[in-house]
Simulated assay, not measured.
Amino acid sequence: MTGQTAAVFTGRVHGTVQLRHTETGTPVARFWLHHLPRVYDHRARQWTDGALVPVICTVHGAAARHAAETLTDDVHVMATGDLRITPSPHAPGQQQLYLDHARVGIDLTHHVAYIDATLPGVLAGQPPARAAA
Rank of each mutant, 00 (worst) to 15 (best):
R38W: 04
G15S: 11
V59N: 00
Q94V: 06
L71W: 00
A133K: 02
T80G: 11
V59F: 02
Q126I: 02
G93F: 07
P89D: 00
Q126G: 07
V59H: 02
A79F: 04
T72H: 06
R38E: 08
H66E: 02
G61Y: 14
G61S: 04
H66K: 04
M78L: 12
A68V: 11
W47Q: 15
R30P: 01
Y40H: 12
I106S: 10
P89I: 06
Y98H: 14
I106A: 09
A102R: 01
V17H: 00
D74Y: 12
L108N: 11
V104N: 00
D74T: 13
E23W: 01
A29T: 05
D100P: 00
R103D: 13
E69W: 07
V104Q: 01
Q126F: 12
L19R: 04
G61M: 05
T22G: 09
S88N: 14
G50P: 05
R20P: 02
L36M: 07
A117M: 02
T10D: 11
A67Q: 02
G15Y: 15
A79Q: 02
G105A: 10
R20Y: 07
Q96H: 10
V77R: 01
L97T: 14
A7T: 02
I85G: 06
R103I: 09
V13K: 01
A29V: 04
A6K: 04
L71R: 00
S88R: 11
H42D: 09
P89G: 06
A29R: 00
A64Q: 08
T72N: 08
G61W: 13
Q4Y: 06
W47P: 14
Y40Q: 15
V112N: 00
H14G: 15
P127F: 08
T5P: 03
V77E: 04
A131K: 11
A62S: 15
G25Y: 04
P89M: 09
Y40L: 10
R84D: 01
S88A: 12
G50R: 09
V112Y: 03
Y40R: 10
A29I: 00
V59Y: 01
W47M: 08
L36C: 03
S88P: 03
H34D: 15
G50H: 05
C57T: 07
T16K: 08
T5V: 13
D73C: 09
L99E: 02
R43G: 07
H66I: 09
R84G: 01
H14E: 13
D82N: 14
G93K: 03
H21N: 05
H21C: 05
A113D: 13
V17T: 11
T24Q: 13
A91M: 12
P27L: 06
A117E: 08
